[in-house]
Computed example of a mutant assay.
Amino acid sequence: MTHSSSLGFGVLGAGRIGALHARNIAGSIDGARLVAVMDANPDAAQRAAYGGAAVCDDVDTLLEHPEVEAVLIASPTTLHAEQIKAAARAGKAVFCEKPVALNLKETYDALAVVREAGVPFQIGFNRRFDTGFREVARAIHAGELGRPEMFRSQSSDPTTPPESYVATSGGIFLDSVIHDIDVARFMVGDIKRVTALGRVLVADYMNDYGDVDTSILTLEFTGGAIGVIQNSRRTVHGYDLRVEVHGERGKLVTEAERATQVWKYGEGGIQGDYIYYFIERFRDAYRAEVQAFVDSVREGRTPTPGAEDAVEALRVALAATKSLKEKRPVEVSEITV
């Protein structure tokens, strides 16, 4: 591949995220083109095969396509590790939605194959590519806030996921809160200890899988700062997300509550609309993260966030899960293979 050529993508998984990525690659990612799509549901794959992309029956067929140079993995989490290994062994650059796996051993094994193959790898922590999140991180890293002292992240979904999804998700900390954990690491730094509290207040079926739908996670950073992450699977006013970082020189806040940046004033009061879910909230960030991956691969740079970020966010999420189950603070250092 030369710098002037486009990067040919194969997409594994054509659900809501995979289809979004496929559409972006086909039409709005500079230097990329959609070559092939594969999904267990052929109809879903066909719908996501934008621009005349090939529809493949299985992973091997997609990897053997002569024009596929990079693989974007957006399949169910339980398939990620094996698909990463297969793509890396085939010499393809790999972009994978989070997490790599639901445990450290499978994660380490998959990333070892990536390292041995010498292929580029990026993990899909899309919030790092949101303009507000990036500016907060930039300002902190530039020292504009002084020493960070407190971090707070709130992520609340408008509705609970289907029971079939919860059954294989790994729980709220590995499925959802891991995004907030990555943001905390991205902005403030490594986390050494967590304490989790959780309840089932929305969907009783969570109990059948040892999961919760409402959680609070306190963080202790290695640099001395403290933090809290709040998550709920029910927010009747839509997707509710904000991050605050308090430091010695002030506070930084990023949030985006409304889909349309308009307030309506009238006899009935002041009204505004809202963003329904994460797809709408992070639509631009999803495009930006893949653009960053493409640029890194074409320019020979190491993509970021990479393998270390995938591992460390997972370790904190596993520590949070352990804390919830054992009802005690957990050192991240306790989480080993």
Rank of each mutant, 00 (worst) to 15 (best):
K251Y: 08
I216E: 13
K98S: 03
S4M: 06
T168V: 10
V183N: 10
G223N: 15
K92Y: 00
T214P: 03
S75W: 07
H80A: 06
T302G: 03
R301F: 05
I84D: 06
R147P: 01
L314V: 02
E220A: 11
D30N: 13
T159C: 12
E334G: 09
E248K: 14
D39Q: 02
S333A: 15
D182T: 03
E280N: 14
A203T: 10
A32P: 10
V37M: 02
V253D: 07
D130K: 01
K322Q: 14
V228I: 12
S164F: 06
S156N: 14
V337R: 13
L219K: 08
G91T: 01
R287I: 09
H3A: 14
E82S: 13
K322R: 15
M1P: 08
G224T: 06
R152Q: 14
V55K: 14
K85T: 13
G118S: 07
W263M: 15
Q271K: 14
M1S: 13
L197Y: 11
R147Q: 15
S28G: 07
V212N: 08
T336M: 09
K98H: 05
A49T: 03
R199L: 04
D213E: 11
F129Y: 12
L63A: 05
G52K: 01
P305K: 04
G269W: 01
K105D: 11
K98C: 01
E257T: 11
I275L: 09
E244F: 01
I279C: 06
G266L: 05
Q271N: 11
P158K: 06
R298Y: 02
E135G: 01
T222I: 13
S28I: 05
P66R: 10
K322A: 13
R115E: 11
E308C: 02
F121K: 00
V262D: 10
G27W: 06
V337M: 10
R301D: 07
E331Q: 11
T168D: 02
I178E: 11
P329Y: 10
E67F: 01
R234Y: 13
K327T: 12
F173E: 10
